[in-house]
Simulated scan of single mutants.
Amino acid sequence: MSTPRTVLVIGGGAAGNAATILLRRAGLAVDLIEAKDDWNATAGSGITLQGNALRVLRELGVWERIKDSGFGFGSVGITTPDGTVLHEARDIRTGGDDLPATVGMQRPQLQRILIDAVRASGASVRLGTRAESLEQDGDGVTVRLTDGTEGRYDLVIAADGLGSATRAAIGITTKPEPTGMAIWRVATPRPTGVTRTDLAYGGPAYIAGYCPTSDTTIYAYVVEANRDRASIPPETYADEMRRLASAYGGCWPEITEHITDPTKVNYTWFDRLLVEGSWHRGRVVLIGDAAHCCPPTLAQGAALSLEDAWVLAQLLTASEDWDDALFQAYYERRIARVRPVVEASVQIGQWQLDGVRDADLPGLMGRTMTMLRELP
């Protein structure tokens, strides 16, 4: 019986977890390392999963748990700052007609579901561990880890996020760039009657929105121009978000009442990243935010990362030759889909920053989301 190929996955977020689950299912030996000691410690408040993300989660075998844990819906409301609904738009079912258009859920719950699937897959998992060095030759990669161990792998998958140390270690110099916007996020109880995402444009922020994440919870967010992080002490986070949110009507007064604990409020800049040319060097390949990142204006960050893992796993398990041609094919297949989403996500924010009033926002969103209905 032949020895299975060995893969090291660096990073235990959505992309790394998905790759691990799929490769273990195919019989490969997979080690996953995660820098945090607590795998779920900073999973965040909430997440909007479009249908193309749900399609991959179904492939991972976790769709039933996602469905039971989250809140499915099929439309988005556009409102004035005072809460008046101007328009309700039906969401495009990017995962196909047999899946909801959108599921909102608590991000820690999504992470827990994926962690459980990784554990059940039989992968070796080491927490609080990083890759200290990578030495490649024509057959594989020797990796020394910060826990003092060393391993030899046929492939290393870098899923270590926007600030990927692996990306830099293999000589890819592309770095994330701020887009000029930032977002405040918080999880709160769900006001009665909230059954979809509503977005208010205008007021003191560019966008004020919320998304139901279960029968009892939502996550709410407010988008503004980015500010120097050093000028906003963490202990003031609740005050800052409450100040912005208090200008909005409709369900916002009830939401704002719950923005009291600064440790529950997350402040993040919007960044843009797109590695061009290839997403690999030798036997080290990038997936997810390590290769691309965009503002959440189309709610496609997790979806694109999950798709990366799905496509790479398909190619790896279908080929005997893990070579430059295979990894370049992975890049070409993904870049044609990822680039339009990154560019559209950035453009939507830029129109707001520039105060463009006649932008074809519905057209851009419609074209982009229709493209995502196709299989990746």
Rank of each mutant, 00 (worst) to 15 (best):
L304K: 02
Q314Y: 01
E332H: 14
Y330A: 11
Q300G: 11
R272W: 09
T268L: 11
H280C: 01
E332G: 08
W322D: 02
E307Y: 00
L326H: 02
P296G: 12
D321N: 15
A318G: 00
P296H: 04
F327E: 03
H292L: 11
P296C: 05
R283D: 03
V275G: 05
L316G: 05
L274E: 07
W269F: 04
R283Q: 14
A303D: 02
T297S: 14
A318I: 11
G301R: 01
G282A: 09
S278W: 12
F327G: 02
A302K: 04
A290C: 11
Y330K: 06
I287K: 03
I335T: 12
C293L: 11
Q328W: 00
L286D: 09
L286W: 00
D321H: 13
H292G: 12
A329K: 13
L306F: 02
Q300L: 10
A325V: 10
F327L: 11
D321K: 07
G288I: 04
L326N: 07
E307T: 00
A299M: 09
A302D: 05
R333F: 04
D271G: 10
D323E: 14
G282T: 10
A303V: 06
E320A: 13
S319G: 01
A336M: 09
R281P: 05
A291Q: 05
V341Q: 10
L316H: 03
R333M: 07
V342R: 00
V342G: 09
R281A: 13
R339F: 06
P296T: 10
D289G: 01
